Amino acid sequence: MTVHTMTTHSAPERSRWQRLLQHPQFETFCHLIWLFFLFIPALHVVTLADGQPIAFRWDATLLAIAAYLPLHFLRARLTHEGRLAGVSLATFTIGLLLFPVNYCAHTFFIYASLPNLRASMRYSVAQMLAGIALSTLAYRWWGVDWSAVGITAGLISGVGSAMLGAQAAKEKQAQLRQKDHEIEALAKMAERERIARDLHDLLGHTLSVIALKSELAHKLAAKGGPHTSQAIDEMKAVSEVARSSLAEVRETLAGMRNMGLMDALSRAESGLRSAGLTVEVSVAPREAWPVLGIAAEHALAQAVLEASTNVIRHAHAKHTRLVLLAEPGRLTFSLEDDGQLPDDIQPGHGLKGMRERLEQAGGSLILRALSPGLHLGAQVPAQAH
């Protein structure tokens, strides 16, 4: 029994073929296949218009090919249009010298006339037209039939147009790939900025709460006695905040974190009270809220956290007021405190991130000095239907 085996190309072999096909000189070598037409006259003998036979000469044909090959590979590397024109003229001259002994020497006319894809479109079209005109003059000088003129002109224009069209398609694809790379880079940059903003807002708020509760637990523990149990409760609260923060950091890095607005308000109120501030909260009924997009609600929730964190860290306030107001077509959050306000408000990373996030969601951020304190207002539009 004969066993037939099937051989398959391994991945390295396929990669070698792919590298070969993509090599810049591969197409240049492929174009040499058209030199085969120079040997067609060896199959039979034809006559010119005056009836004189033209015999095929091997020596002249091989000599012409040897003279053309350096020009062929030089042309593939040149970009200067003046030098390209010189190579094309030399190629055309080889065809003129060979034509009396090889009527397929018009192959060199075609080589000389086809566009060089490194040159401009204007030069390539002019080269094709010049090649058609010069080959027509040469044919008529030798008395060749007009059909040969039409065939050569058709080959030059047809093959040349196809080459230019293929090159235009390649350039278009390259432009699209470049745009895709740019879009991908911008998306990565936006994602990094989003993560940076979220981590700043999340960790800034959480670490502030942890620091306050840890300090309170330390003071209670130092007093001893009945205060010890209170210190233990505060440390348990620190542990819970830390665990919650760790989970949210992981979600943020995974790009899945989307804190709800009510959760943010609750955390802000808890953090402010832990810092020893009196907090007044006014929240519009949930059914009165306009329908918000995910990005809008997330931006407003982060604004709530960042605003409360700034009060805890910098304001030295005693009283704060949190208001969530439902208005036609938008939802507005505001925070007012009675703390100390610097002469000039210099927005840091947190305020800049808050503003950017709100603006990306179609909202806005407003800061206004009070006497004493500061008013911070953030609003986002309702989701478009």
Rank of each mutant, 00 (worst) to 15 (best):
A76S: 15
S239I: 06
R273H: 06
P381K: 08
G276E: 10
P24K: 06
R197P: 00
L48F: 10
T61N: 07
I366K: 13
L202Q: 05
G363K: 00
R313W: 00
S208L: 10
L186H: 11
Y68I: 08
A64Q: 04
K236R: 07
R122W: 14
L261M: 02
R355I: 03
R140P: 03
G158E: 01
M163T: 04
I294K: 10
T309D: 12
V249K: 05
A153P: 04
T332F: 05
A237C: 09
D145Y: 05
I195M: 11
H106K: 02
L376N: 01
L63N: 03
L324M: 05
W34F: 07
A382Q: 08
P328M: 00
H205L: 12
A112M: 04
T278S: 14
H314L: 03
E184T: 13
M259A: 08
P70D: 11
A307N: 06
S113K: 04
A162K: 08
F37D: 08
L129K: 08
L35V: 03
A105E: 10
I40D: 01
H316P: 01
A130T: 12
L21H: 15
L35H: 01
F39L: 13
W17C: 10
P226L: 05
H44E: 09
L71P: 09
R177N: 15
Q22V: 08
W146F: 10
L164Q: 09
I345W: 14
L220D: 02
